[in-house]
């Protein structure tokens, strides 16, 4: 299984031309593992926070209810992000796919908090 994944990770090698393909693949795995952990939890947390801050603006939604909605749905987001990190064709795409939603969520959250 490891060997087959090396083919998937080959585009990563462009970032590390000087080392052997084997080590290149390993580095790719390492980078992705880190990105999945930090990105997965971070984006899930941002999502939960945004939902919590956003939904409680609506009339008839209890603040504690909005918090729960954010909290309970965040785990699904976390899994999706982890899958994206390992599914992305190369590291550049992967990073963009993490940063864009993170920035969007962050800005939206910041706007909500600023106008509160």
């Amino acid at each position: 299984m490891c060997n087959s994944f090396k083919d998937v990770l080959l585009p990563d090698l462009r970032l590390s031309l000087t080392i052997s393909p084997r080590w290149g693949a390993r580095c790719g795995v390492l980078v992705r593992t880190f990105a999945a952990t930090v990105g997965g939890y971070g984006i899930a947390a941002l999502w939960g926070a945004l939902l919590s801050a956003g939904l409680s603006r609506f009339e008839g939604v209890a603040t504690s209810g909005a918090v729960l909605t954010g909290m309970l749905s965040s785990f699904a987001i976390c899994v999706c992000v982890v899958m994206w990190v390992f599914a992305a064709r190369d590291l550049k795409r992967m990073a963009l796919g993490l940063l864009i939603p993170a920035v969007l969520l962050g800005v939206a959250l910041w706007l909500l908090r600023a106008t509160a």
């Binding site: 899930a44 947390a45 941002l46 939960g48 926070a49 945004l50 939902l51 919590s52 801050a53 409680s56 209890a62 603040t63 504690s64 909005a66 918090v67 729960l68 954010g70 909290m71 309970l72 965040s74 785990f75 959250l109 908090r113 509160a116």
Partner: peptide, 23 residues
């Protein structure tokens, strides 16, 4: 969930105490 994902509580402007008291 509230251990793993405390951020929604913080973002809502509630404290942990007021959140638990409400829930």
């Amino acid at each position: 969930a509230s251990l793993y994902m405390p951020w929604p509580i913080k973002a809502s402007g509630m404290t942990e105490e007021s959140y638990y008291a409400a829930l």
